[in-house]
Every structure is written in C-alpha cells, then in structure tokens.
Amino acid sequence: MSNLQQNIISIKNLFKSFGNLFSRKLVLKNINLDILKGEVFGLIGPNGAGKTTLMGCMLGLLKIDSGEILINGRSPLNIEIKRNIGYLPERIGFYKTMTGKEFLIFQGKLFGLPNPVLKKRVDALLRELELKDVANCKIRIYSRGMLQRLSWAQALIHNPDILFLDEPAAGMDPSGIIRVRNLILQLKKEGKTIFLNSHKLSEVEKVCDRIAFIDKGEIIHIETLRRDHLIYKIEYSETKKEFITLDMPLIHGLEIYQINNSFIKIKVENERALFSFLKHLLNKGVKITEVIKEKVDIEKFFLD
C-alpha cells in the first residue's frame, strides 16, 4: 500500500438536493470521502441511494448545494483536471449517425490528441475491445454490449489517470463481465485510480481495494477489502459479551466484526492474531465450543 497514500480525490461535507424553490429533496447528505492514488474504490448501494448523483457531482455535471470536491487539489471543472479523467456513463446515449470509429476520433479530438497518436489509440482500442469488425458501421446498429464496449473505448481514448465508471458491466454477458473485470484489474496494475459505481456486489468484491456503502444519500460504512483477511466465528457457551472484551490485550491485525452472548466474529490478518485471541478467551475461562473459518463475503457486510 506504500504507493497508495497520496490523496487524489477529496470530498468534504457534500450536500446535494434536487427540486425547485418550493420543494427540494436532499439526495446526498454530508458525504465525506478520500480516494487514494492508484486504488480501485467502489460505491455500492441500492437503486436510488445516490450513487450516480455522487458521481455526477464529482464530474461537475451536477451542481452541489454545499461542501467541496477536489480532484488533485482542484475543482472537477478545471480544464487540466478534465484532461486526466475518463468517464463511462451508466445510461449510454450516442450520436447514432456516426460510425464507431468516427465517434472515437471525435472524442479523441475533443481531448486534443494529435492525429498520429489518435489513430494508434483508436486502432488499439477497437482491437482490444473487439469492435474492429463493426468500427465502420453506424452506431445505431450496435447491440447493447457493443455500445458498452464503445463507451469503454471513449473513456480510455486519452489514457487518463483517473476513471469514473458508472455500472461498468451493465448489459454485458458473462464473458463481457469477465473482460471488464480483467480490464479494471489491468488498469489498476497500470496505476490508474478508479472510482466505480455498481450494484453487483460480487463484481465489486473482486476488483476493489475499498468500498463505500451508500444508502438514502448517506455513506454508512467504508470497508477496506483485504483478500488475505480471514474471518472466524468462535462459538462459546453462554457468556456476557462485555466479559469477552474485558481486559482484552491489544492484538495486532485483529478486528471484532460481530459479537453477542453466544459467539464472536473476528477478522484477522493472520492466524497468529487468531491464536492470541483464543488464548485471551481461554485465560478468561470462556468455554469455546467451536471455531469456524468463514469466507470474506461482501454481501454479508452489506446485509449487516
């Protein structure tokens, strides 16, 4: 994580509402987020939670009521900042009279790419995203999956450092979803910072370093996903939960995740931390009945 420490996106006390002078609905409430350079940050939540609105605010497409959004220390509307941002929208509208290739060339020119560079980028992206065969066809004949891939291509045309992906695998078949997953992981390897919205928990889990849960316009939890983390459920005979944690020594790499009078769930970085915790329980005279290793399950986090 040593190269991930620089803060690249910072959101402070963000509020956003929609409506008119007489009636307004608050859709984002006091959002605070810091996204680090090179990380893949996922925003998940139910439909209507405010995911796309938050992304719209971060891109400057939506005006905020109060608060601050800074990308590399500057406003998202700053021209130099925009030069480094790629955006994949959720709902895809295209200039349907253009061909796929013409569309990509137009997008590249808007980023100010010189012709030789643009030509290479367009050819490479059409090949990588398997659009070469339909590159000279009008966009209106493209399938939903092709449109999604074309949208990916326009987001990557200028090789940006920061990517905003709104439901990146929407409308794709299973092989398309795997392709998107691999693409995100490849971009992560290249050092890109990625902010993505999704409601597909299983997909987010596979690519994100951290995820934020958003509901009714509020960030309710931010979780760091460490794939090397282990979760253990330790069951014991009826014991008051306060007694379990009383006089507990500081154990490095251990986090209590759920506790009640009959079991405790802990998240540990390694088994040494588990053994230290078990030793603590035995020293206190707690009767352990079972230790169960559980899979890290983002869906459980979400439901909890």
Binding site: L59, G60, L61, L77, I79, E80, K82, R83, I85, Y87, P89, R91, I92, G93, F94, Y95, Q107, L110, F111, G112, Q154
Partner: peptide
C-alpha cells in the same frame, strides 16, 4: 436533444469550457 439522450455528458466531461 443532447440533454435528453445523455450525449451532452460526453461533451461536458471533456477539457473544454462549457
């Protein structure tokens, strides 16, 4: 038409003044 189809977002997220 650009606003309702969403294509305006492609223009407004580019490094061009609104």
């Amino acid at each position: 038409k650009e606003i309702s189809s969403g294509t305006i977002q492609f223009l407004l997220t580019k490094p061009i003044k609104w």
